[in-house]
Amino acid sequence: MNAVIDIFASAGLWAAVLRIATPLILGTLGALLCERSGVLNLGIEGIMTFGAMIGWLAVYNGANLWTGLLVAALAGGVFGLLHAALTVTLGLSQHVSGLGVTLFASSFSYYVFRLLVPVAGTPPTIEPFQPIDLPALSSLPFIGPALFTQTLPTYGAIALALVLGYVLFRTPLGLAIRMTGENPHAAEAQGINPMVMRYGAVIFGSALMGVGGAFLTLSAFNSFFPTMVQGRGWICIALVVFASWRPGRALIGALLFALFDSFQLRLQAVLGGGVPYQIFLMIPYLLSIAALVLMARRARVPQALMQPYRRGER
């Protein structure tokens, strides 16, 4: 039992939590922004995969790491534009369009990767983001190695959760986005253009998903392989509900999931003797379902989520 408790006392666990949480934070914020405007974006899984691939590919071809993130954001934005054109302008089913984007973007990633990167026994690598040394903070005992040995994108993701929370709840733009997600007709009657709001939210949200994917290849690892997103996009969709569509809670939810995940990894090492490791792999998902049930019952869904908006039609 002590061995289990020791897991929580290791700085390595907490450092891993932040690292594992980062793509989830970015993806969840992106999905949350889309949904706040009334558009469900199930393209997330594919957009993250494509972001991971294209960001890595840019850096592999000589771009610097920040340019890699930017390229991933732009690519995410382009898929967002596609999803918005299908669901906002044409008013098609958001489920079907989103799943279509995911299937297309994933397969397209593998294709581009295969086309441009020679097949090799060991996958080619790049030099990823390095943890930055924060004077004074990083050298604190325990807290230093636990919390302040991350790469810049991780700190950026955490800051972004706070910024997005501020924008949604404290600025006129945020109110306009939320109004569009609750009742686009009301937004229109108040002089807000719901089409513009939805396009903007979906494109920007998808860009964040792209960056979330690129974090995997540019910071957490240093190479790309096709299955690397591994359902993280779907976790983000669930986290949005868990967070009741609030960025601050999305941050907490992502950290919590990352805690389950890094805990099970270490638990495998401690208790792994007689138990198949797949049991441990299930733990974070089981805990997520439990947490979702507890939290989501009180959630207030944006009222116009998944409803296409057509002008003049009620």
Binding site: R170, T171, P172, L173, L175, A176, R178, M179, E182, N183, H185, A186, A187, A189, Q190, G191, I192, R300, P302, Q303, R314
Partner: peptide, 26 residues
């Protein structure tokens, strides 16, 4: 049929769209 958003507050319903979207604070 009211043009209102049930999940928002009365003040938010009234304020939406009345300010420049690019103001940094409502």
């Amino acid at each position: 049929h009211f043009s209102l958003a049930p999940n928002l507050t009365v003040l938010e319903n009234v304020m939406a769209g009345t300010e420049s979207l690019w103001r940094l604070r409502s």
